[in-house]
Amino acid sequence: MSETIAPLVLFDLDGTLLDSARDLHAAMDALLAAKSEPPVAFEEFRPVVSKGARAMLKQSFKQADEAARESLLPEFLAEYERRLAEHSRLFDGVADLLERIEALGPRWGIVTNKPYYLAEPLVRKLGWQSRSAILLGGDSLPRKKPEPDQLLHACAQLTVPPVRTVYVGDDERDVQAANAAGMRSVGALWGYRPLDDDPARWRADALIEAPLELIERGLLHGL
């Protein structure tokens, strides 16, 4: 492997590698029905998926206060666990990107805020358990993104310095975590994003419109 190529590429999961919005939306609709609440439109729900389960509950249970929404969190996650990977699909270009990264030589891994007990079976269903060098969930450490702890832990476990690592994610928290960790931050613009969220303000080192731009624009080089 060339000394100029980053030895490690880390990815967010939902909204970056995997389009899981349909399964999450189905889980939320089931929960809403169980509580005699009207369904939430998919177009309204999808943009907040990368903000996490609490943001999805806030978007869907608009009349509930924070304490009431918090009490619904275990039920929502249980509904989602029952539907895990029924309709989730890789974003276009992701499979090719991972193959290209492997051909170039770097290792790649996943650092997500999704709980590990949900992320791990997804990774197995995708056949990535032997390909991904590391998988860290939002509950793997006391703090999660936007704090840099998960990213720094991944680097320590794989003995790669953060300065020679690239992190790709579709949410501002991903960029904040990567910047705080001292690694190259890349914003994925094909993911989930509210209309009022301007990626130009994230302060990412680069923004990409499609997965293969990571390689085509040389964003793995120079590290």
Rank of each mutant, 00 (worst) to 15 (best):
D197R: 04
L24P: 05
P194Y: 05
L195I: 09
A41W: 06
R217L: 13
K35L: 11
Y117I: 00
S60R: 03
S2L: 13
Q176R: 13
Q176E: 11
A21W: 03
P115K: 02
D174N: 07
P162S: 13
K114V: 02
E37Q: 08
R201K: 07
V40H: 08
G182R: 09
R54P: 03
L126M: 02
A67W: 05
K62M: 15
K125N: 03
P211S: 12
W202E: 12
L220V: 12
R143E: 15
K114F: 01
E3A: 09
E102M: 06
L90R: 01
L118I: 01
S185M: 11
S20T: 13
W190C: 11
M56G: 02
S88T: 02
D96K: 06
V168P: 05
L219D: 07
D205H: 10
L104K: 10
R173I: 06
I215V: 13
K114L: 02
G182K: 08
F61E: 03
A67K: 06
A85I: 00
A33I: 06
A181T: 09
R46N: 14
D197P: 10
I215W: 04
N113S: 12
P47K: 01
R82P: 02
A206K: 12
P146S: 08
F11V: 00
R131P: 01
A55R: 03
D29A: 09
A188L: 14
D171V: 14
L72D: 05
A78R: 13
E99I: 12
Q63W: 14
G93N: 08
Y192K: 09
Q63H: 13
V48N: 03
G52C: 05
M56S: 01
H87C: 15
A177N: 12
W108K: 00
L32G: 04
A210V: 15
E102R: 14
M28L: 10
K35S: 10
R22Q: 08
V48D: 03
D29N: 12
E70I: 08
T16M: 13
G222R: 15
L98G: 02
Y116I: 01
L214K: 07
L31M: 14
P148Q: 05
L158M: 14
F76R: 04
A210G: 13
V160F: 03
F11R: 00
V94W: 00
D29C: 10
